[in-house]
Write a protein that binds this DNA or RNA. Structure first.
Length: 894
RNA sequence: GCCCGCUUGGCUCAGUGGUAGAGCACUCGCUUCACACGCGAGGGGUCACUAGUUCGAAUCUAGUAGCGGGCACCA
């Protein structure tokens, strides 16, 4: 069989995915066991405008590992893919395209514009779905969803109508975050705060009927044109006399009152606050408390309105600021300007400074929904967050939740199902027809706003499964098993899904929430488009292969990690190791095929066979535990160590003599069969992490056929992705074999160490003399003598109770008090040898002292668990044996 | 201001009460018939600091420092 020495990932990545997809292996229907347990995940829908970034690759890897694992375990498994319509992003994307044609969306009009967006989606949206295929993501494409699909839109309408009918959605004038650039309102979560160096302006307002002035400090002088009061703390004695007084607001002809409000911090600024109810959230609240007028002086384009006065009307807010300050200076009312750093609210998307404005919007009352989520957590401990630290973040936010602004002044999205009659009457309905019936007229105008993109996302776990219809899918796959996402959308998305899931399904949308870490750049900075420090997963795939990238990402788990290409490289090497180990097995497979019977314990098995079966079982056991417990890093370490160290470094080397024997014999066939069978198991264990290379190799293994598939997939064509995931067989765990093998490893390692220290040429065969007083150990050494001899390249391996070695030998002490020696007549520098052994003696002595001290402590012996005490006693016994032997060895040098 | 996380060998990170681990880097030796993307043998860490709990602390508690993140406020 011709197999190249190096694994070429591209070759394997080309074929398998399309076969898997076309054969329907990803769909839950592949599972034909009517009683199969269910495992389901809905993907966090990427933006239709998006392309794959490292965060996706990380999350998708975790989800695919779990999905493939559960599928191989026989679960009816669904990983449901889909995309988000991403209101603002997508609208901006298409608007930018139009701009190239010198058109604005208003030139097209709403209907044509929306058509154009759909057209854009058709032609260039959803790049990411192609990229997900490259990743090997085993999602069921037949169930792919888009948040603007008809079905999902129906769910959105249904939820809106029901919430409205229950009084949980309302429309009202509130102060909101307005993006003057995107021309829409934003929710609190779509606003980001950034620190900014600015100025604090101290303005004086004259008190009516007196020469006194009151000084207020502000970062936004232009808003004073909309002031309708000044507030002070009721306990602030400095201003006690002024409460109730009237001020003459400069630059206007308004008279405004001084009010007392607890909100005011006497320590800050002058302790007196100008109140602009129409342009500041806190002032808005104070205005409500004190019945202050709301005067809108800044419009939706961040320009001053007529109400700001003729002098300022039409000016941009920043221009107006300069003009106001200048006027105050002229009037002698500008006390001072000081440098001041504060944080400024910007639109998360376009980074424009957000303007707080009073505006008529739709809101969801969150308290009742919030309580559903908090109850779920209190009573059922759901969802379970992994890592659990995020539970606190989640509850803190829920406890302080505020009403959710759900309307957006966009065209791309779910248009709000509310209609207005000419009379001004408002009707909320599932359709125009229903609205017309309710209103008794067809002369209706639909609300122009669309819903926040996150509104439809909040329904994702059930809308994608067919809700509001009671579909089979909904009944089968809801609640889903786990949600995998990044921590930055716990509020935006996770919490809202929980609330909506509880509200409309009465059950949690997912049992667990696994929060992945973040891949940072090599400097520890977050990767971002603006910083241009992102690493393109596709480029990494090209360079190192998808499998290497995946297993590296899986090893990241839930902690933040800096991007480290060396790490991917090491997993690329691992992939190559898997390739070559398989290559070896395949090159020596004639006459053999995979056979489950080869994994069963029998009396005539050689030590290395009993040992690898035991190692395989422990690995299987540990891997199950690690994946089930979301310990991805541990999973990867377990696999890596088993495959490279146990399987390649020891097992293959030990079984090599039998496997590569020139003569066909039952022994050779058995060894080959066992090697192939262990390899088959190892590939299955690796498959969830490294789907391509494992399929590529597995397909080549003799005997890799339908018989190896999990019974639930028995009728499928052979594929490792539907092979049964190994189950732990406790009876094959063989502690005795592990102990014996450890002794062999110890011996081999000591000899190799001697050879290396003595500069014995690697090719040179030397006699090796082993002496051990322990009958059992001698039996172990003897039983594996051929293998040991091969590994240490000995010309002769003599095993006896009492080691009689020439004085001129290099020696080392073995675990259990034995000694190993290599006679080196004429090559031994006795003084050097003595020093080498003395060094060993020092080490032993230090170790002995440590253990003796602990055992000498009566408190330890009394209070520590017996098991620990015995462990230490065994250790000290071994140290003692080795010490005695070492002493002897040194004496023999004399 | 409140909350959270991190601090372990040169680098990137595991470990979370009982003998300090991995990968990379480093040193030495190897074209040993699967693999130089490899093999063998090594060197290297008072686990940020302080105090406490404990027979025993890298691990638990409290505090300190540095770094990172989130939330609130910022007139």
């Amino acid at each position: 069989m011709e197999i190249p020495k190096q694994y070429d990932p591209k070759q394997a990545e080309e074929h398998h995915y399309s076969r898997w997809e076309q054969a329907g292996f990803f769909a839950p229907e592949a599972n034909q066991d009517p009683n199969a347990p269910v495992f389901s995940i809905v993907i966090p829908p990427p933006n239709v405008t998006g392309s794959l970034h490292m965060g996706h690759a990380l999350q998708h890897t975790m989800m695919d590992v779990m999905t493939r694992y559960k599928r191989m375990c026989g679960y009816r498994t669904l990983w449901l893919p889909g995309m988000d319509h991403a209101g603002i992003s997508t609208q901006l994307m298409v608007t930018r395209e139009l701009k190239k044609e010198r058109l604005s969306r208003h030139d097209l009009g709403r209907e044509k514009f929306v058509e154009r967006v759909w057209q854009w989606k058709q032609e260039s949206g959803g790049q990411i779905t192609k990229q997900m295929r490259r990743e090997g993501a085993s999602v069921d494409w037949s169930r792919e969803k888009f948040t603007m699909d008809e079905g999902l839109s129906r769910a959105v309408c249904e939820v809106f109508v029901r919430l409205y009918e229950e009084g949980m959605i309302y429309r009202g004038n509130r102060i909101v975050n307005w993006c003057p650039n995107d021309q829409t309102v934003l929710s609190d979560l779509e606003v980001e705060k950034t620190p900014q160096a600015g100025k604090l302006y101290y303005l004086q307002y004259p008190v009516k009927g007196s020469d006194e002035r009151i000084t207020v400090a502000t970062t936004r002088p232009e808003t004073m044109l909309g002031d309708t009061g000044v507030a002070v703390n009721p306990k602030d004695e400095r201003y006690a006399a002024l409460v109730g007084a009237t001020l003459l607001l400069p630059l206007t002809d308004r008279e405004i009152p001084v009010v007392a409000d607890d909100f005011v911090d006497p320590e800050f600024g002058t302790g007196a606050v100008k109140v602009t109810p129409a342009h500041d959230p806190n002032d808005y609240d104070m205005g409500v408390r004190h019945n202050l007028e709301q005067i809108v002086v800044i419009d939706t384009h961040a320009k001053m309105t007529e109400a700001a006065g003729a002098e300022f009307a039409g000016l941009d807010r920043l221009k107006a600021r300069e003009a106001v300050v200048e006027k105050f200076a002229e009037l002698g009312l500008l006390e001072k300007i000081v440098d001041y750093e504060f944080s400024i609210s910007k639109c998360e998307r376009c980074k424009t400074v957000v303007e707080p404005l009073i505006s008529l919007q739709w809101f969801v009352r969150m308290e009742p929904l919030r309580d559903l989520a908090l109850d779920l957590l209190a009573k059922e401990k759901k969802p379970r967050f992994i890592p659990d630290t995020y539970e606190k973040v989640y509850t803190n936010w829920l406890e302080n939740i505020r009403d959710w602004t759900i309307s957006r002044q966009l065209w791309w999205g779910h248009q709000i199902p509310a209609w207005y009659a000419k009379t001004g009457e408002l009707v909320v309905a599932r359709s125009f027809e229903e609205a017309a019936a309710k209103a008794g007229t067809a002369e209706l105008t639909q609300d122009a706003d669309v819903l926040d993109t996150w509104f439809s996302s909040a329904l994702w776990p059930f809308s994608t499964l067919g809700w509001p219809d009671e579909t089979k899918d909904l009944q089968t796959f809801y609640p889903t098993s786990v949600l995998v996402t990044a921590r930055d959308i716990i509020f935006l998305w996770v919490s809202r899904m929980v609330m909506m899931g509880m509200k409309f399904r009465g059950r949690e949308p997912f049992a667990d929430v696994y929060i992945t870490g973040t891949i940072l750049d090599p400097q520890g900075q977050r990767m971002s488009k603006t910083k241009m420090n992102g690493v393109d997963p596709l480029a990494v795939f090209d360079k190192y292969g998808v499998d290497a990238t995946r297993i590296m990402l899986a090893s990241v788990g839930s902690t933040d990690a800096r991007w480290n290409e060396k790490q991917v490289e090491s997993y690329r090497n691992f992939a190559n190791k898997i390739w070559n180990a398989s290559r070896f097995a395949l090159m020596n497979s004639e006459g053999a095929r995979i056979d489950p019977q080869a994994l069963v314990k029998s009396d005539d098995l050689a030590l290395h066979d009993r040992w690898i079966l035991s190692r395989l079982q422990k690995t299987t056991r540990d891997l199950h535990a690690a994946i089930d417990g979301y310990q991805f890093h541990e999973s990867v370490q377990t696999l890596y160590h088993f495959f490279w160290d146990d399987f390649c470094d020891w097992y293959i080397e030990l079984t090599k003599a039998d496997v590569t024997s020139e003569d066909a014999s039952p022994q050779r066939t058995q060894a080959r069969t066992r090697l192939l069978s262990v390899l088959d198991q190892a590939l299955r264990l690796l498959h969830p992490f490294m789907p391509y290379i494992t399929e590529e190799l597995w397909q080549r293994l003799p005997g890799a056929d339908a018989a190896l598939l999990h019974p639930a997939y028995a009728s499928a064509s052979p594929t490792i992705m539907l092979a049964a995931f190994p189950e732990t067989r406790g009876d094959l765990i063989d502690e005795q074999a592990e102990w014996e093998m450890q002794a062999v490893i110890d011996l081999v390692t000591r000899v190799r160490n001697l050879r290396s220290e003595m500069n014995i040429k690697p090719g040179e065969r030397v006699p090796v003399l082993v002496g051990s007083p322990d009958d059992q150990l001698r039996a172990v050494y003897s039983a594996s003598a051929d293998q040991i001899s091969r590994l240490v390249r000995s010309s002769e391996l003599k095993i006896s109770a009492v080691n009689e070695v020439p004085r001129a030998s290099a020696r080392a002490v073995l675990t259990g008090g034995g000694e190993v020696a290599i006679p080196l007549e004429g090559l031994i520098d006795f003084e050097q040898e003595r020093q080498r052994l003395a060094k060993e003696q020092d080490k032993l002595r230090a170790e002995a002292t440590k253990v003796e001290t602990q055992l000498g402590n009566p408190n330890f012996v009394e209070r520590a668990p017996e098991e620990k005490v015995n462990e230490l006693r065994a250790r000290i016994a071994d140290i003692a044996q080795r010490t005695v032997q070492l002493q002897l060895t040194i004496e023999n040098l004399q």
